[in-house]
């Protein structure tokens, strides 16, 4: 069994201060991930120091804007562009903003919608 994990809920306004705090504490950014729960979107920021994870969760709607932490952690831009392209959540102030061209997908913001493919058969007609 591995160590238990907790995810602390925070507000959207706390995202950047928490990132700054994490950086002061000498933590590295592990990942930013998004999950769609009903109509809400949960975004989880995970930091690590000495193999101990610290996670913060914010809950937003698709129309909401979230601030970028790429000014604190340069590498955050890959995750933030990903969230924008796959979920359609707007992230403001990314240092390298691909403006929706990071992933090119057939369906726009694929993770925010339910997808039914017409041709689901094995046979390739």
């Amino acid at each position: 069994m591995m160590e238990p994990q907790t995810i602390l809920p925070i507000g959207v306004g706390d995202v950047v201060p928490k990132a700054e705090q994490a950086k002061r504490d000498g933590k590295r950014l592990v990942q930013i991930g998004c999950t769609k729960i009903g109509d809400d979107f949960e975004i989880i920021y995970v930091y690590d120091k000495d193999y101990q994870l610290t996670s913060y969760r914010i809950t937003v709607k698709q129309a909401d804007e979230i601030p970028s932490i790429s000014s604190v952690y340069f590498g955050a831009f890959v995750y933030e562009n990903e969230i924008h392209d796959l979920y359609g959540i707007h992230v403001t102030g990314i240092n390298i903003d691909f403006k929706g061209t990071f992933y090119k997908t057939t369906i726009k913001h694929p993770f925010s919608v339910t997808i039914v493919k017409e041709d689901d058969s094995c046979q390739n007609k």
């Binding site: 997908t105 057939t106 369906i107 694929p110 997808i115 041709d119 689901d120 094995c122 046979q123 390739n124």
Partner: peptide, 15 residues
């Protein structure tokens, strides 16, 4: 050949 296990993925058009 056909898309394999990924044929149902939204971004896979097929073989």
């Amino acid at each position: 050949t056909s898309g394999g296990v990924f044929r149902e993925c939204y971004n896979v058009a097929g073989g």
